[in-house]
Design a protein around this nucleic acid. Structure first.
Lengths: 346, 346
DNA sequence: TCACTCCGTGTGACCGGTCACAATCTCGGC
DNA sequence: GCCGAGATTGTGACCGGTCACACGGAGTGA
């Protein structure tokens, strides 16, 4: 069509209007599916639209109408499997709804840095999804101005908020409970916990699920060993635990942590699962291929991301009611890394 | 300040102008650091700005000026370590330059899907960074309209483009070369390659670096075994290679693949590094904690992301010249998974 | 036949900035 | 004490859409 070399700027509704012999407002009505446009007119406009290759300018739409059709995800580290998967889920759902997805990384959990990042996200104009699994995220969620549409992806709240609260979560508490029960049922006297950094000063959902299982079984409770998010933190925690010969079962805050723990146990000469059983969380892709392969609890992060977006969508579109969006329940996956404790009875 | 419950809409430059007793244009000058504003006026305006909590509306800026201060990253799977790290690097650099970061995931490499995704990204209005390590990405890079500012993150090009081409890459070819040389220098007769999916029909940069090292050493060359991106693909490839007793060294397209290969070798009863040596790429966080820990080539993906953004920034800001932005060179990290071949001479 | 509604369409203002240009002020030099 | 250059500041149009409302014509009931 356009053989003249100049980069011609994209067609606007007025260009289309001219080509179709109508007013720009009529074009606007057509692209918004407004009912009161005569069939024949509509067809003429549509023809002009795809002859000129018109696409509605998202910026102008946002400015004029206030509606933005975009989400910004605030998160602290996109390289961790869980976070990356949530992001993937959000993007997938957003794409289906033709929303743009923005991302802002919380590099520090210092108040001013977090506030700045929230500001930046707010400037984008659309809705916000805050992944609040860690202190930075929690702080960010708290710093979001009250008038912005926002959904938090959080740990299982102690008391579940009503169905209309804009939060989603997987049932981490239940997941930890299941994993701990599994280990106890194999005959371990108790289960130690190598924790991921908690989102709050209070105990995390995973911690409390673990505690509950121990308590119900009357098993001795030890303090969780503090780890970080990655294998390095797991390794450090594992070294500590490996020194204590009474430790026969370790629950790890996530699969990366578990990897570090496995390595530390190996270095200490303690066999898994012969002497020590290990379980993780998440069922990250590598869990099944480790040696020994890792017993873990599968969490549906992608689904969680989709649910977060769906909820945000409900909020911004102010559709009649804000429906809860279900996330699939955690599922224990038993593999090689867990087994009965070494027999001491003879 | 605002004790009246109503969510009042944010202050505009006209609000600020009124408060400071100047025209809106003067406010515009102040927020753009235009030199010709009297010191005293500027101070008055600045005072009004932070009294009203004014923030420049990004949408209006984009519409009025055309400048957008945003990048959209087109990528195919944000959960893989390399991709996620590049994204992290881009975001970091973008944040420093106060650019917004958008993300679009290429779920399929089918032409129409890719084209739609490119369109969506173009609608955002800003620059584009396309991660073109795989067919979907390559196709997307090709589908970007010529008038859009775009930077590709690509495999080492066969013939390096001039310094002004908007592409960045790590030296994958060199990385593969180094890793292969390392294995050969340990005494292996040859090195097999479990490949990640190539970005093109032609051989990938990693493949050709590997080939070159073999050729130079006069080692027999076998066809690469095709894997996927994750451990599952590595596992399949590993099973295949494990059946061949002549295989003593395997180079894997990335660390995840290597994990799967290690597992397959374990299942086949072949010890690493006793009978078979394995090396990966990337130095992902888990590489150091596997058992055996993984020999790999460290690639600076975060730096690559930063460089990609810097280059894009050069392009859109039309600063005098487009400078090449260096990315640190690959570095071989030798760990437990590689060693001399089993001795056959007695 | 006339007022009254409903349908289809057009006009003008506006969203919150920027740009181009005009208008006013200020000051040094003669 | 007047003039022109440069420094400051203001005005109007515009970016590409939307919104509120006005307008002409067809159909309808009285």
């Amino acid at each position: 069509m356009n053989m003249t070399g100049h980069t011609k700027r994209p067609a606007s509704i007025r260009d289309v209007a001219r080509a179709a012999g109508v007013s720009y407002q009529t074009v606007s009505r057509v692209i918004n599916d407004h009912p009161s446009v005569k069939q024949s007119t509509r067809e003429r406009v549509v023809a002009a639209i795809d002859e000129l290759g018109f696409r509605r300018n998202a910026t102008a739409l946002a400015l004029a109408s206030g509606r933005t059709k975009s989400v910004t995800v605030l998160t602290s580290n996109t390289t961790h499997y869980g976070y990356a998967s949530i992001l993937q889920g959000i993007e997938e759902a957003a794409r289906a709804a033709s929303y743009a997805v923005g991302i802002g990384v919380l590099e520090s959990d210092e108040d001013s840095a977090v506030a700045a990042e929230v500001q930046r996200a707010a400037d984008a104009g659309g809705g916000l999804i805050v992944i609040a699994y860690d202190p930075a995220g929690v702080r960010a969620l708290g710093a979001v101005p009250g008038d912005l549409p926002v959904v938090g992806v959080v740990e299982t709240p102690a008391t579940p908020p009503g169905g209309d609260r804009p939060w989603v979560w997987t049932d981490d508490r239940e997941a930890a409970y299941q994993a701990t029960r599994h280990l106890l049922s194999l005959g371990h006297e108790t289960v130690h916990y190598a924790a991921i950094p908690s989102s709050t000063r209070r105990t995390s959902a995973r911690t409390s699920g673990w505690r509950q299982a121990l308590r119900e079984a009357g098993a001795p409770e030890h303090r969780p060993v503090q780890g970080s998010w990655g294998p390095a933190g797991g390794h450090a925690a594992g070294r500590q635990l490996a020194q204590d010969p009474s430790v026969t079962a370790i629950l790890c805050g996530n699969d990366d942590l578990a990897l570090g723990v496995l390595r530390a146990l190996y270095e200490a000469g303690r066999s898994v699962p012969g002497e020590v059983s290990v379980a993780g969380f998440d069922d990250a892709p590598h869990a099944a291929y480790l040696t020994p392969s890792l017993t873990t609890v599968r969490l549906d992060f992608t689904g969680l991301g989709r649910a977060a977006f769906a909820l945000l969508h409900d909020v911004v579109e102010e559709s009649a009611r804000i429906a809860p969006h279900p996330v699939s329940v955690p599922e224990l996956v038993v593999r090689e890394s867990s087994g009965p404790p070494p027999s001491t009875d003879h």
